[in-house]
Every structure is written in structure tokens, then in C-alpha cells.
């Protein structure tokens, strides 16, 4: 049996063993009557995750290295937070662990060069949605009566069919990840770099604000010259590799035909090329969002509006003030009105 065959058999096996171990860990960590050794379960699950990472290491492409520490840290935090979230008997803690997962996820987003989404995730999810969850959890939790030691409901403290559910879940996981072990190339370097020309060219104001005055002061650009724009799209012509930008004489009334001959590439000196002139993630995302999915934004707006209305209608409390209370209210209002 040569090495390749060994590898190809070990990887799925390794994965399946890891899944089994992970499932065992999750089952152990599940809340139940009596002891629920979440720590042991967590360790087992972490071991499983480690096995998977080992498997992934074995299938990495030639010359590719290990992912760095941050990836591992964020992945472990995210998965551990998720594990603890689904196993913690107290809803408030579960929600807090979910916030941990969210923050770790946003770390992964950062690694994936999705800076905007990373922070949006923290703001929207951890900041808004989870706080709503916490509110509702607090609103909908019964206060403990005398017989109970703490405010822990039965339905919180015991999991339902932990073995069957966990088995099903991990079988699914194993199946989903089997394909992963066929290997893919490493992530491309510097996302958006290839397209930053285009992004920059789509943001003329930014370039002009930064460059036009500087270039004129440095007398690299004549006063009668401006940046050339492509006739059909109105975009600038920028070469980020060669650091050049196409300049053209300012359009004079009635002399449009002669422009072509006097167009020239202006080389921008190193110190004048500001860092922020590269297209950023937010700009790229904004262009993508508004340029290619405008209708979807509208639909999302409508969905949010409907959700808002729906939630208002659903949660409206049927306030049934008693007559006396009403009268009291009216008296109070009357007194305030007189003031």
C-alpha cells in the first residue's frame, strides 16, 4: 500500500472517527438530570476538531502551509461557543455563548478580508439581535418558586433525545465534510486587488480629490488637463501596477475631436499614491450591493418592514384596563392637564 492510497483511506477514516468522537463529546456535554460533565464533552469535541484539522493538514495542497494561529483560535472559539450554547442549561448563558460565537465568527470574517461584514456582524448580531433575545429570555423566564433552588426549568435542564439527535447531526456533518477532503487550493492573496483598478475607476471623486490637486502642484499635470474618462462608462483609466493614470485636456466647447491625440498617461510618483486610493472592502461591497443587487435591497426593505409590522401586531398586548383603572388614569391626566 503506497502512501497515496494510505492517505486517501486515512482521511475519510480520520474524519469519521473525529465525527464519532465529536458526537460522543456533544452527547456527554448535553444537559441532563444529575451530572452533565460539559468539560469532558468539550475536551472530546476539541479533540475531534483537532483530528479534523490534522486531516485537513494532510490534504493541503503542495507547498501550502498550516493556517495560522488566528484561524485556529477563532475556529475553536466559534465552535466551542456553539457547543456550549447548545449544551448550557441556562438560556441567558446560552445567549452569551452565542455572542462569543458571533465574535469569533467575525474574527474569521476578518481573516477572510471581509472587514465590513465582520463589524456589521458584531453590531447587528451581537449588538441588536442578541440583546433582543436576552430581553425576551428575561421576559419569558418564570421566577423560581419556593420549592426550586434556582430558576431552571425542566425543559431547560434536560435535553430531548440527545443521542439520536446528535448522531443524526454528526452523520450529516460527516457526509457534508467528506467532500472537503478532496482538497482545494489556498485562498488567493489580497482579494479585490485584481479588481481594485475597476473599483478605483468607479470612484472618480476619491481619486480626483486626492490626486488632481497634488499632480497639478507638482506640475505633472497641466492646468488645462484633467483625468480622461471612458466615453461609455465615465470611468477613469487607472493602472495600479504601473501607477499611471490617463490624463486628457479639459474639454473645450467645439473641440472634442482633437482630444484623443493629446491624451497621455501620467506617472504618479510613489509618495503621491496614497494608501487609501486602493479600493477598500466597504467600497467594493457597496458597489456590488448597489450596482448589482438593487432590487434585492428593496425586497429586503420590504421584508424588514413586514417583519416590523408583524411583530407589532403579534406582540401587542391586549390591555384590558379595568374601569376603575381607566377612571384613575383619566383623573391623573386631568390633573396633569390643569397644571
Amino acid at each position: 500500500m503506497d502512501a497515496a492510497t494510505l492517505e486517501s483511506t486515512i482521511h475519510p477514516l480520520l474524519l469519521y472517527v473525529a465525527c464519532a468522537v465529536g458526537a460522543l463529546g456533544v452527547i456527554i456535554a448535553m444537559p441532563r438530570k444529575g451530572v452533565s460533565p460539559a468539560l469532558i464533552g468539550g475536551v472530546l469535541a476539541a479533540a475531534a476538531a483537532g483530528m479534523v484539522i490534522m486531516g485537513l493538514l494532510l490534504t493541503r495542497p503542495e507547498g501550502a502551509g498550516m493556517p495560522n494561529l488566528f484561524f485556529h483560535a477563532f475556529a475553536i472559539l466559534a465552535l466551542g461557543g456553539g457547543l456550549r450554547m447548545i449544551t448550557h442549561p441556562k438560556p441567558v448563558y446560552a445567549a452569551l455563548y452565542f455572542i462569543l460565537t458571533i465574535i469569533a465568527s467575525s474574527g474569521l470574517y476578518l481573516l477572510l478580508s471581509a472587514e465590513f461584514m465582520a463589524f456589521a456582524l458584531i453590531i447587528i448580531y451581537a449588538g441588536a439581535i442578541l440583546i433582543t433575545y436576552l430581553f425576551v429570555i428575561m421576559l419569558a423566564t418564570q421566577s423560581p418558586d419556593e420549592t426550586q433552588d434556582e430558576a431552571l426549568s425542566v425543559y431547560d435542564s434536560t435535553a430531548r433525545e440527545p443521542i439520536a439527535a446528535t448522531t443524526a447531526g454528526f452523520v450529516l456533518l460527516a457526509l457534508l465534510t467528506t467532500m472537503l477532503f478532496r482538497g482545494t487550493g489556498g485562498l488567493p492573496i489580497r482579494p479585490g486587488l485584481d479588481s481594485s483598478d475597476a473599483i478605483l475607476a468607479s470612484l472618480p471623486g476619491k481619486v480626483e480629490d486626492a490626486l488632481l490637486r497634488d499632480l497639478r502642484e507638482a506640475e505633472l499635470l497641466d492646468e488645462s488637463e484633467g483625468f480622461a474618462r471612458m466615453g461609455d462608462t465615465g470611468k477613469l483609466v487607472i493602472d495600479t501596477e504601473a501607477r499611471t493614470i490617463l490624463a486628457a485636456p479639459l474639454v473645450i466647447e467645439g473641440a472634442a475631436d482633437e482630444i484623443v491625440e493629446t491624451n497621455r498617461y501620467v506617472e504618479v510618483p510613489e509618495e503621491m499614491w496614497p494608501e487609501e486610493l486602493e479600493g477598500t472592502n466597504v467600497e467594493a461591497l457597496g458597489l456590488n450591493l448597489l450596482g448589482e443587487h438593487p432590487m434585492t435591497i428593496e425586497i429586503a426593505g420590504i421584508v424588514l418592514l413586514m417583519a416590523m409590522l408583524g411583530a407589532t401586531v403579534l406582540a401587542r398586548k391586549q390591555v384590558d384596563l379595568e374601569e376603575e383603572a381607566k377612571a384613575r388614569q383619566q383623573r391623573r391626566l386631568a390633573v396633569e392637564g390643569r397644571r
Partner: peptide, 20 residues
């Protein structure tokens, strides 16, 4: 609810097993 969810997941898992 859980029973239905469990069966649904089990069904998906079976389908994926066949595919695999």
C-alpha cells in the same frame, strides 16, 4: 416539533448517504 425536525434531518442524512 422536535420529532419532525429529527426525522427531517435523518431523511436528509439518508439522502446524502446514498449520494455519497
Amino acid at each position: 416539533l422536535h420529532d419532525y425536525a429529527l426525522r427531517m434531518i435523518a431523511g436528509v442524512a439518508v439522502v446524502l448517504v446514498v449520494v455519497a
